[in-house]
Write a protein that binds this DNA or RNA. Structure first.
Lengths: 349, 349
DNA sequence: GTTCTTGTTGCTCATCCGACTCCCACGTCC
DNA sequence: GGACGTGGGAGTCGGATGAGCAACAAGAAC
């Protein structure tokens, strides 16, 4: 490797001009008046030497690193984090920024989160994205406030900081709507037991949709279990095993795809065929599950990619002064959860 | 926020000493002779002001950023990338380093990869981890050579660069061994159609294990399909639907968990119960599938977390001069794939 | 007992890392 | 002698670091 540490100085020497001129040319400084001959000489020299600016020195001087910090929970255990990162990364790259990712356990203490943010601050990131692994309310480290920041998939407790979250209500309505449209009137909800916004909002939307359709939303059956495959299996089994065959639900709205996967097994064991005997819709659109179950699971997609991209886009706007985050901080921005239709919904018998 | 931009200079003024002294104290420079009184004054002042060093300035001077670049393919579409990142992140954090992650499509051109590496180089990362989403041979951007680098889950084409890969042979042997130990003598292999190391090595190990067990390894049935759920379903269906019931396999070794998931469905459709009528083992240990299928899938785990950690550990050793990568570059390091037993294997009827 | 080395201890000065940028110095041509 | 058109000098960002200086003590020389 010959190209060890080529600086602006080397380019200057090669082109026979001063470093000032090189800087002017390469940064296309507007007020610099330089002949096109000189420009060419400089550009050619830079090219030939394989010059790339030292971003550290540049950042030190300009007070801009072109880096965004991303604090993300549980990078490995949920595919959701991956999609947020992807959305953020692509949006950042498109605007010339790079990401510094810090992973943190969902259970991390406030001090530990603060240390994570501190690490980002010491590296002088231009802004910070703070992402959680599921939609919830978080207590934020206070040092977050010292640079522009945006929350992804969560809102701050008592906080006025810009945030973007999924439209739980709309998503749940789309899911239940798909079942209603297919003609179902006896629909059950397999809910989660955690006390998170999604649990409450989806339940509320579920009942509201039924009521608005002229059914008795308040009486519709709801079974809660932990939101895993096993929980879905148990909840479905309870609902589908009731004596009263005539009033048994013909459709299941599941809190997430994992629970839906459990419901599939319960249905199989009870000799119920999907979608002929039972329609199912999930939530999350986890590729691995939803697309690979048989029959394919109709579900609602969480806009993780979109939230990551939206947050990044607006964070950069704020950094560049094109946008004012404090105006948007009043209410979280809500992004849609579109229905993804596959084969698990049909008209009731 | 009062603590805007506190520099070493501010600490120096507050403590009534020079910046040199502050630097000496805070970095615990061994040759610096400073009274403990002065040390205390400096530390107290730094504490009170909430001073944190500007890592950019530090890095510019010391030529050390304490950052590692990680080029990872397809961050969002495979959980494997997440585990590599997690392993790398934890190992890095433990040694005081941070990660800069660049995501790149698996299909990216060589120039595009080169640009990714260039971005990392301009930020003066101390070393680079280059990770692929599945075990394969890659053509590397040449600028990768200008800082210490380690490949994760791949080896360089014609290249002598340190790499760490999974033990395909050992993993496949463990999988087939589990079936053999359970007493199976008629075992089939559902293989992948891609031309990657895993495809060849697992097939070879499969045949070798059978032969070593006194069976006719060369004659054992193998069906190849794309390594997805659908492919597994089709391959399993072909194998399990043959006329010759007496010679039908009693156990299936699947190229990965997704194909195993397809095999489960094929078995269900044919009225075969797992593991009573048919034993199945997979490969990958994708939590979402392996632990959630019913019955739980016995499979072999890929050491993604471990590869990420190993690579990081040795990369840092090389950066700090404790290790010489070129010595390890001769042969890729191989990490074990342990068997994860669940409930899909039993003795044949 | 005073004055000089010689040595420590304790801390500071000046410079540097690599790029950006304000301000000034030339010619030339009207 | 202004007004351009071209280009360079030197300071700056924030911290690291080798060289050097002042103060004081112990031992040596007178």
């Amino acid at each position: 490797m010959s190209n060890k540490n080529i600086g602006i100085k080397d380019v200057a020497v090669a082109a026979g001009v001063s470093v000032t001129t090189v800087s002017h040319v390469l940064n296309e400084v507007s007020y610099a008046r330089i002949s096109s001959e000189t420009r060419d000489k400089v550009k050619t020299a830079a090219e030939e030497l394989g010059y790339g600016p030292n971003r550290l020195a540049q950042a030190l001087r300009t007070q801009r690193t072109g880096m965004l910090g991303l604090v993300s929970e549980e990078i490995a255990t949920t595919p959701h984090a991956g999609r947020i990162i992807l959305g953020a990364d692509e949006a950042a790259k498109a605007r010339g920024y790079n990401l510094m990712i810090i992973n943190t356990p969902g259970s991390a203490s406030l001090e530990s989160r603060q240390a994570d943010v501190q690490a980002l601050l010491e590296r002088r990131v231009d802004g910070i994205l703070y992402a959680t692994m599921y939609h919830r309310n978080v207590e934020l480290p206070e040092n977050l406030g010292s640079v522009p920041s945006v929350l992804v998939d969560s809102v701050a407790i008592g906080g006025n900081i810009t945030a973007v979250v999924p439209d739980e209500d709309g998503g749940a309505r789309a899911a239940v709507g798909a079942l209603l449209d297919a003609g179902h009137t006896r629909i059950a909800f397999l809910n989660n037991t955690d006390d998170v916004p999604a649990t409450r909002q989806r339940l509320q939307a579920f009942r509201a949709m039924l009521t608005e359709a002229g059914l008795d939303g308040d009486a519709a059956p709801v079974e809660s279990e932990i939101s895993e495959v096993q929980g879905g299996y148990e909840a479905a089994k309870r609902i589908l095993s009731r004596d009263d065959r005539a009033h048994m639900p013909t459709a299941l709205f599941c809190y997430n795809d994992r629970m839906a996967m459990g419901a599939y097994r319960a249905a199989a064991e009870l000799g119920l065929s999907i979608p002929a005997d039972l329609s199912v819709v999930g939530f999350d659109d986890q590729e691995l599950i939803a697309a690979n179950l048989y029959p394919g699971l109709t579900t609602v997609a969480l806009p993780h990619y979109e939230m990551g991209a939206w947050a990044t886009e607006h964070l950069i706007d704020a950094i560049e002064g094109k946008d004012d985050l404090s105006l948007m901080a009043l209410h979280p921005t809500i992004l849609g959860c579109p229905l993804v239709s596959r084969e698990s919904v049909a008209a009731p018998r």
